[in-house]
Design a protein around this nucleic acid. Structure first.
Lengths: 233, 233
DNA sequence: TCTGATAATATGTGCAGACATATTACCAGA
DNA sequence: TCTGGTAATATGTCTGCACATATTATCAGA
């Protein structure tokens, strides 16, 4: 059990996992320091460090200098969900992807949105509405504002043929973003776009992205009724 | 610019980020190998490795042995959202937390759920329904099945005073889980529990967890109307 | 031209040692 | 008793080196 056969960091990580899981090290409890573990496992401290650091990033351990390492009391599980790139999602379903731009006009976003975007005085914006379809049926309806001042290329692009999301991904990298998921009843407009009943429950994503402190885009995506966003943890 | 002042991995990471961002290294393009970068930055290869590995985990780079490192064409942004522990979420809002068990009875889940749980022949289950409140108002209504065979302590516990989620977190650690987010129209039961109109759009989370291949619990949580799940990316 | 063995190469990881840094514990002095 | 300085300590990270491993490129032989 305590022989020195944990020679790589994955093995060390698995052994630590096992001990936490088997409650040999109970939640909230301190575990031995890296040096001792390294001796026990018969490996270098760096190897133990790598394993423990990984588990700490995963939320299973809490580490603080000098204070030591303890088993997390409330393992904050982190679900990493990839921001859906719609075309890929639809194609992975084996369905044919379609895109249609419905609306494109320069204008000024409402006051509240400007604040959220941390927009500057003379920023110019364009509003783009579009639907993306799977086998011809509406999949997502999106309503987006793009900051033309920070993304000048967007003006020529126009998003008539390619979805803004896709174009922006490769042409306007962002450094930060906020994202929110919620449920909403379909308005008349949304219901019309998604070809469903008004009032149907719709899964909605709000997303805002910045390049450092310069806003790039703000988008609200309405998914077709029944859409499920899934992941493993 | 190319002087050797990138002595720690964070600095290297930032410099690489900057170059990707400034399109010195464009999407899809190969970047120099670790050895060359180490020489350029005036640090050890391990330091460069740490930085690049981190960026690769973040989805900005794609690395393959021998093939080298390239800038990701479609940076798959990963939003890491912590699975909400309701009590903490409510208390962080500065509101008073409440819990009430509404239903507790042994029984057998429907066939479809049993399959999803990968349940075994003689597994015993208990169904628990409860609400959690913020300042007295309903916040979440949840409908849960707990596997008593894998979590025997659950039978004595009963979840009369503490939410199942909280108790399970510290008493039945899980190794894997599936989670899904979607929107649904409130049924009569849900509307009654959340004190809203039937048909209101409700944000719903389905979650199933396992301890290795032994199912622990399956839960569906209905959040109060207007609930938003937020995170940064 | 095709196929399979082999060499070349970039990343992945291990080790030992060193120093950096945050944080705690302790103790002297007011 | 309280306070501020100092020592002790666990983690954080860098270095230089080595070898492992996956993958590609190459080339000989059929």
């Amino acid at each position: 059990m305590t022989a020195g056969e944990f020679k790589n960091w994955q093995a060390v990580q698995e052994e630590v996992r096992r001990r936490i899981h088997a409650r040999i090290w109970a939640p909230g409890e301190m575990i031995p320091n890296e040096q001792d573990l390294a001796e026990e496992f018969g490996c270098a401290r760096a190897t133990v460090n790598r394993a423990l650091r990984n588990l700490s990033e995963a939320g299973l351990l809490e580490r603080r200098r000098k204070a030591g390492t303890r088993v997390a009391l409330h393992p904050v599980r982190k679900a990493t969900l990839s921001i859906p790139m719609i075309r890929k999602e639809i194609e992975d379903l084996g369905q044919s992807y379609g895109y249609e731009r419905l609306f494109y006009r320069r204008g000024t976003p409402p006051e509240a949105l400007l604040r959220q975007l941390k927009a500057r005085e003379n920023d110019q914006f364009v509003r783009v509405k579009s639907v993306q379809t799977a086998d011809g049926a509406p999949f997502v309806f999106e309503d987006r504002w793009v900051n033309l001042t920070t993304v000048p290329g967007a003006a020529e692009q126009g998003f008539a043929e390619t979805s803004a999301n896709e174009w922006l991904l490769t042409h306007a990298p962002y450094t930060e973003g906020d994202i929110a998921f919620f449920a909403g009843n379909a308005s008349e407009e949304v219901a019309g776009m998604l070809r469903c009943e008004a009032g149907a429950a719709i899964f909605v994503i709000d997303r805002v992205t910045w390049d450092n402190d310069r806003s790039i885009t703000s988008v609200r995506q309405y998914f077709r009724p029944g859409y499920r966003m899934q992941t493993s943890i």
